[in-house]
Nucleic acid binder design. Structure first.
Lengths: 209, 209
DNA sequence: GTTCGTTTATTCGAAGTGGAGTATATGGCG
DNA sequence: CGCCATATACTCCACTTCGAATAAACGAAC
């Protein structure tokens, strides 16, 4: 028995379904609406992928074309609506994405894992740059959140922003702690210590496997 | 201002370079070594992608073939070593990945953003499942960290595990808080309120870049 | 009234991803 | 010895991603 290789709709397809839950649209309109609602902060929305996603959703019967209209001589535009099965699959996938932590591979994990390959001052400089970037990031988010708070928008419509804010905050805290530990010498740098063994390396070339 | 279109080596290619910093290897050996060192927890390592990545690294001159040997009649295996330019690019990319927060799209952000599409009890059930999953996740990590602590492995070699642990912890905390707020009725569910119309969501499109 | 920039809408193709498939060697077991 | 499971080591191709290219319509300025 293999580990379920079948995949439901991806993030972009899910976003499409979400829009079509409200009302039928054609792809271009979806794109605009996603921008307006800042859905593009949660999923990568690119033209090509969008049309592809829509196409696949149609092939799998989760959405269907209602009409193809043409204004003047512009490219024909096809309007789609969600099917009943589409609604079901949407809910299922959403539940799944909520309940099951996906295994993703954030780049910073890799960077942190390889950090010992830089020399300590260099690493510290880069970490410092990152904290700065995250700080301005958080500030911008804060402004936005304040704006949203003044308007009477239902909280459930923007908890995702609060979530992201919390995560950035956590990362910032962690990095600051790491920097402090490094600067105070609580963590010593592998290459600087006498008994490094794992990473002494590479003379000139010859080594037969 | 366009979003920097120039791309250095991706995560997998970076991992390859990191290995080859130590000593020459052939692709299959890289794969094994990555498994042993749990690099596969930080990057998605799949055969096809690996060979492709190696191929591209060679084409761009960041690594080069040193020898192709054959044992018996097995497929030929090509051993690669890193070039000087490879080393430079590795360091550059690592610095970049450290200093600049990448914009990635974790699935849970989307799920949280769409959560209001489920009814409240359903959403709470899914969130609860997630907390459970994360808890066991954290427990497993803790065990591993304890094991590593007993061995005298340099801390810098596993701070990435600590980092991931901290991030999971933060997510868990946030979700618990959300659940608490939802259960205590501090956040009311959109559908439960007199629904004006779902189109309240969008407002001005302009904001800080 | 034509030229220029923007908006409307989609197609296309190059590049990348990922897993199944291929093919040989090796080791254990009756 | 014959058989099967596993390890070694890639190759292949179906699918996905994402930005460039295409192309018509619209507004407004010269």
């Amino acid at each position: 028995m293999k580990s379920t290789p079948r995949r439901g709709p991806g993030p972009l397809a899910l976003a499409v379904l979400e829009l079509l839950c409200e009302r039928p649209m054609h792809p271009y309109e979806m794109q605009q609406t996603m921008r307006e609602r800042h859905v593009n902060r949660m999923v990568k929305v690119t033209v090509g992928s969008l049309y592809h996603a829509v196409d696949k959703l149609e092939r799998t019967g989760l959405i269907e074309a209602t009409q193809t209209s043409r204004e003047g001589n512009r490219p024909e535009r096809t309007t789609y609506r969600i099917t009943d099965e589409g609604r079901d699959v949407f809910a299922d996938q959403l539940r799944h994405m909520t309940a099951e932590p996906a295994d993703e591979y954030p780049e910073f994990d890799l960077a942190v894992g390889f950090l010992h390959k830089l020399d300590p001052e260099d690493a510290l400089r880069q970490l410092h740059e990152r904290t700065t970037a995250i700080e301005s990031n958080l500030a911008a988010q804060q402004v936005w959140m304040d704006r949203l708070a003044t308007q009477n928008l239902q909280p459930m419509y923007w908890i995702n922003i609060r979530y992201r804010h919390a995560m950035w905050q956590a990362e910032l805290t962690w990095i600051r702690d790491l920097v402090a530990r490094l600067e105070s010498g609580q963590i010593n740098w592998p290459n600087c210590t006498p008994r490094t063994k794992l990473t002494v390396v590479h003379e000139s070339a010859e080594e037969t496997g």
